[in-house]
Design a protein around this nucleic acid. Structure first.
Lengths: 202, 202, 202, 202
DNA sequence: ACGTAACCGAGACGGTACGTCATGTCTTTCC
DNA sequence: GGAAAGACATGACGTACCGTCTCGGTTACGT
């Protein structure tokens, strides 16, 4: 006897999309603390149990919403443009800072700081981005170790301004950072001068 | 006529300290989401109303606890050691990453991401740190604009690793960053080569 | 088209009964001021929200508990026995004075005196009882107005002794009151003497 | 050695009067449940501790306020008018029902139902009133036992309407009750007819 | 006149109950 | 068997009073 491949109603794609859309919408309109599962279900006109059936936590909803959103709005993340570091950084910074995206990134960070199980969601999320940047940097001549470090520097700047909000994330910043990164790669290959002395020595 | 400056029982300093100590203790032992006002009151053996009387929100308790703690454990933040960039960065990174401090910093960031009114608390908190670093960088020869940028880079790295937790915040990282910063200052004064071409141009 | 009559989980009858039983139990064991919603929920092992969902106030819980209890313990309120006034009053007085019932009636009165919204709960509660007595009195020949007055007299005596507690509510009292009432009905129909001398009679 | 009779500041009579006046005022304006010690202190512009120093419970404040008030407003309770039953009942019912007095009587009853130690305050309070009425009834020819019973009937009616509030306490009611009482006294001396049969007998 | 003891107002303290909200689970009915 | 509706126990929220405990300041004796 052939085992039945599936019984019962299939997952309702409309409900899934309604939940993710409601999450994005709430994320933009409200503070994170008001993006409750209750509110998402209300907004999406969906049963609360439907959410619990398909997503293990609010964090994961937010993440999936963010990925869904990223996929829809950044159609070509791995295109030819990424060959050029400056273009990549400009797109990255400006995209992250946009009113549509920033609240989502901030929400993900907030959850990660509050909830352990969501911390590695953020871990994976950022790791994917760093991996892309690392490969670009290596194509620009950076060693694996250096590209690791420099992608932390690059994304650190992004998240820091996102977090603190004291200064803009714009194309100028992207260009400055691109220059810094290129400079660092070159310096790593042919050191300019004597390094700094050890602390405590004259 | 001067109205009476105070009537009635004075604020109990022991209760204040108990609340802050309980907050620090919970911050270290638990996830942020378990650091409820309820839990703080329980831990501090204090009436809940006493907390509401003196602190407007959980965020402010956490901040005050953090400041209280910083004051008690970092007795000399502006000492002679800060003359040396590398020493400063080592102390900053290692101190921030310590098991005692990291949870507090993370808690402050979490609140800032969730609560609008607390966001500028983080703003001021980080501004003070950047100001110190900026003055060090300027003593190392950086222009005001460059020191602004480089302190963002430096603290961005710190907060990024604090946030994502994918890599250590140690002395090696501090040294690498010190080198990057010094390199950037020098490059700003005597550019090494031709800059990168404009994107989109041949 | 008739809209859907109900969706979702039904009200849990066990929870309802548990709340009412807990209320009766607390009413007997404690002073009224200790019969808090908190305590009822604890005693009934029921969520506090469940109580707020179904009852608008503590007063209404107590009323429903009392009615539920009255229904369970006075199984035949409209039976043949009530044809006889004396039997009805004996049952009413002795029942009200019993250790099981008196605390409940006193508790209801206490709340009514303290809380406006509970006052009309007592209003309805007592009105139902007076209505029964009124119909008995009318079967005994009393006019509507007189039966209204006499049922106030009869229940007034009951509540007064319940309130002050200076004398018993027993069968002797019931009999005396039955006699008083019958006397009053007869006197209303054929005045004993020249009360106010009828015009035209000697 | 003779113990010192008193040292230190004397009790502030103004504060005492302010508390009692505030209590009477609140009793009239609010529900009993809003007459909190907090509210009394606020209204009287008096420290809360001053209340706790002199009065053991809210009930006692209410009682003292009531006595204070009665003394001030009912200068001659035992005048010649009490010779006449109807006049006495009219004054009693209308006085009790007045907007100034009813809230106070209700408050006393409420406390008596809730607080055991205050129950006999109500006991004594009502006993004094019944004693007056009893002596009037005996002057109208009632036996001691009958006058006991009839004064319960008379005051029962009063308190019942005060408690339930479903009907007025006015001069008509007083007259009707006076007639009922007179009728009962006469019937007790020369029974009209055969009494009712024992319940349960054929 | 001066000490000192008790009173006064104000108000902080640890508690407890309030009524509301969101959580994650369970149940019912419809599709 | 998926989905919407909605009841369930739980527990934190922020508020109001409770009764107690300081506080400075104010009387009003007794020396």
């Amino acid at each position: 006897m052939v085992s039945r491949p599936h019984t019962g109603r299939r997952r309702n794609e409309a409900a899934r999309r309604a939940v993710l859309a409601a999450t994005i919408s709430l994320l933009r309109r409200s503070e994170m603390k008001d993006v409750t599962i209750e509110a998402i279900a209300r907004e999406a006109r969906v049963g609360r149990q439907t959410i619990y059936r398909w997503w293990p936590s609010r964090a994961v909803i937010v993440l999936e919403a963010a990925e869904d959103y990223a996929e829809a709005t950044v159609p070509d993340p791995g295109g030819a443009a990424t060959d050029d570091l400056r273009t990549f950084l400009r797109a990255t910074y400006v995209g992250a800072a946009s009113d549509r995206t920033a609240p989502i990134l901030r929400a993900i960070a907030a959850e990660a700081l509050v909830d352990t199980q969501f911390a590695d969601v953020l871990h994976r999320f950022t790791a994917a981005r760093r991996a892309v940047l690392r490969s670009i940097l290596q194509r620009h001549g950076a060693s694996p170790e250096l590209s690791e470090y420099l992608s932390d520097v690059t994304y650190g700047l992004l998240w820091y301004r996102l977090l603190v909000g004291h200064a803009a994330l714009d194309e100028t910043l992207a260009d400055t950072t691109a220059a810094l990164v290129v400079e660092a790669i070159e310096a790593d290959r042919e050191p300019r001068l004597a390094r700094m002395p050890e602390p405590g020595l004259p």
